[in-house]
Amino acid sequence: MDTQQQRVAIVTGASGGIGRAVAERLATDGMAVVVHYSGNAARADAAVEAIVRSGGRAIAIGGDVADEVAMGALFDQAAERFGGVDVLVHSAGIMPLSPIVDMDLDAFDRVQRTNVRGTFVVDQLAARAIRPGGAIVNFSTSVTRLQPPTYGAYAASKGAVEALTLILARELRGKDITVNAVAPGPTDTPLFRDGKPQSVVDAIAAANPLGRLGMPQDIAEVVASLAGPARWINGQVLFVNGGAA
């Protein structure tokens, strides 16, 4: 395939969980994929190998999403290797949990740096680099509506992500670039399961109207639509949670 014609996607946080499912789905849709990772190069390499085995094209590039120099280099490498950038899916984020009254402020600052500054950095670069007909897909969370205890810092960071998403969609008027956010509910990933006993996981799954947790592929399905054919969806936050109240 002519690399100048193939669509190119950068997926942050793509070494595992939802990010990896998104990277593999976009590759299945015919995109060349940059698999971004923060600290686990081996898992990112495994994601690349899975895409290549299936006939796709992918490379792994590491870096801190809140570091504008590192992320600038990532966008430059994507363009040099594949000819340009058409899609950014920004799934990287962290989720330390604590009641607000007890939360260490250094932990709070880390959440905001990664989730808010990181989104601002990669969205800014994407707004400058993405070709017409492209898409930016950020990640929020259904926690911004469900508002359970211990999620205060995380929900605050994702509320900021939603605001950035909607404003950027309006600022890119005339560029033919859509900007949306997906807001998953409880999804069966290591990040979700971390620190939860199985009884809690089972109760959360049973509370959903569909009687289960979301799967990474459920989220990837929606992202693939926003990244490809769903051109009339713009400036929206889509709650992808199976009907969680």
Rank of each mutant, 00 (worst) to 15 (best):
L238N: 03
G19F: 00
A155L: 07
A79F: 00
I61T: 03
V143T: 14
V35K: 07
G17M: 05
V85A: 09
A224V: 02
V89M: 10
G214E: 02
E80W: 00
R131L: 10
P132S: 10
Y154F: 15
S140G: 14
F120R: 13
V69R: 11
A183W: 11
D67M: 08
A79G: 15
L238S: 03
N138D: 13
L164N: 02
M31Y: 12
G228A: 12
R7G: 07
P132H: 02
S38T: 12
F139V: 06
V116I: 15
D109W: 02
Q5V: 11
A21C: 09
H36T: 07
I61N: 01
T119K: 09
P229H: 10
D109N: 13
G243V: 09
G118E: 10
M95T: 13
P148Y: 05
V35W: 08
H90N: 15
I219D: 04
V200H: 09
F239H: 14
G228E: 00
A23E: 07
V200W: 07
G235I: 12
I204V: 15
S98W: 02
V33N: 08
V34H: 03
K196C: 01
G228F: 01
G39S: 14
A66S: 15
A78H: 08
A70D: 06
R110A: 15
Q77K: 14
M71C: 10
I204F: 00
I10H: 04
F108M: 10
T28V: 10
V11E: 04
G83D: 04
A163L: 09
A135W: 00
S142P: 02
R81K: 14
A79Y: 00
V89T: 05
A47Y: 06
Q217C: 01
D64S: 09
S98K: 10
A244R: 15
A227H: 05
V69S: 11
N208C: 05
T150F: 09
T189F: 10
A160C: 12
A47H: 06
G242I: 06
M31D: 02
P148E: 07
L226I: 04
D86A: 03
A46Q: 14
A181C: 13
I177T: 05
Y37H: 14
R53M: 02
A206M: 01
I130Y: 03
G195M: 02
G39L: 02
V222W: 05
I100Y: 07
D45E: 15
A73H: 13
V22H: 07
G55P: 00
F192H: 11
A160F: 05
R231S: 06
G211V: 04
A156E: 04
D45N: 12
S54D: 15
A50Q: 12
G19L: 01
A79T: 13
V179T: 06
Q5H: 14
F239K: 01
